[in-house]
């Protein structure tokens, strides 16, 4: 995998929010066809890092390359256009809009009448619910129901369904199994592996070390805004991985030194 050039290359990334130093000199490579587990404690900078990758935040300094090309402007629209789909943890759904409207927000399918773009409601309703039902949306919920009235799991299923529908080259999942039942969780994890096998880059953020150890090819561990370790899951057992996180990455450094 590492002999091909990385799909996403992050070089010396720094991000400040006022006085808060959220990302400190982070460099990491991600390759197509890889499933990366991004782990670390709360506030470690995982979500901040992926929010740079999906264009929500612009870095204070450092560079991001996508497919060999340096990213000059950071905006979610540009990232989406390049084929980066993200299942965000706390943002991504507008409570006041229906499921169908949320599903297609930003890239609504249209039918043109005299050149004027009108929303293609039939397609929006039919397709959105068909995709989302696979991830646990109840049969009696309609595409016209507002997202506000959905349960936590159903909200998550809307975000996952949307990423699957539009997935292209990269799928970033920020705690994707939150609020999901055991069966739906398995479904999402199978999905992550499937996407990887289809040649996509999958970045999977989680707190569940044992789960990520089973799924991922490689884990990137962050702490206090820094990348503290980056190791293949073949090289570490899940217990060792847990120990690494507890010690802030020192175990891996020791191993590499050996």
């Amino acid at each position: 995998m590492t002999n091909t050039h990385p799909l996403i290359q992050v070089k010396s990334l720094d991000l400040h929010f006022g006085a808060f130093h959220a990302l400190k000199n982070v460099s990491v490579d991600f390759h197509a066809g890889e499933l990366i587990g991004l782990v670390g404690d709360n506030g470690a900078g995982k979500t901040t890092l992926i929010r740079v990758l999906c264009g929500i935040y612009a870095p204070s300094s450092g560079e991001v390359y996508f497919d060999g090309k340096k990213i000059e402007k950071f905006h979610p629209k540009l990232a989406i256009d390049q084929g980066i789909e993200t299942i965000q943890q706390s943002v991504g759904l507008c409570d006041n809009l229906s499921i169908a409207r949320n599903f297609y927000l930003g890239r609504e399918p249209v039918k043109r009448v005299l050149g004027i773009p009108f929303l293609d409601f039939a397609k929006m309703r039919e397709k959105s619910t068909r995709v989302i039902r696979q991830f646990g949306l109840r049969e009696n919920v309609s595409a016209d129901d507002e997202v506000e009235r959905l349960s936590g799991g159903e909200r998550q299923s809307v975000k996952i369904g949307r990423a699957v529908e539009f997935m292209n080259r990269v799928v970033i999942m920020d705690e994707p199994t939150n609020h999901l039942s055991v069966r739906e969780r398995e479904h999402v994890n199978e999905l992550a592996v499937q996407l990887k096998e289809q040649g996509l880059l999958v970045i999977y953020i989680t707190h569940d070390i044992f789960q990520v150890h089973k799924l991922a090819d490689r884990v990137v561990i962050m702490e206090n805004g820094e990348k503290v370790a980056d190791a293949s899951t073949d090289a570490l057992t899940a217990e060792e991985l847990e120990e690494v996180i507890r010690q802030g990455g020192r175990l891996v450094e020791k191993r590499e030194a050996v």
Partner: peptide, 28 residues
């Protein structure tokens, strides 16, 4: 018609509902 049946209306209401979420979906 613009508000209910066109992409512009969908995005306008999304911005009012949650500017942050709308932004994350690529809405300007």
């Amino acid at each position: 018609a613009m508000l209910k049946a066109m992409p512009f209306g969908n995005r306008l209401l999304a911005v009012g509902g949650s500017a942050e979420s709308a932004h994350s979906r690529g809405v300007r």
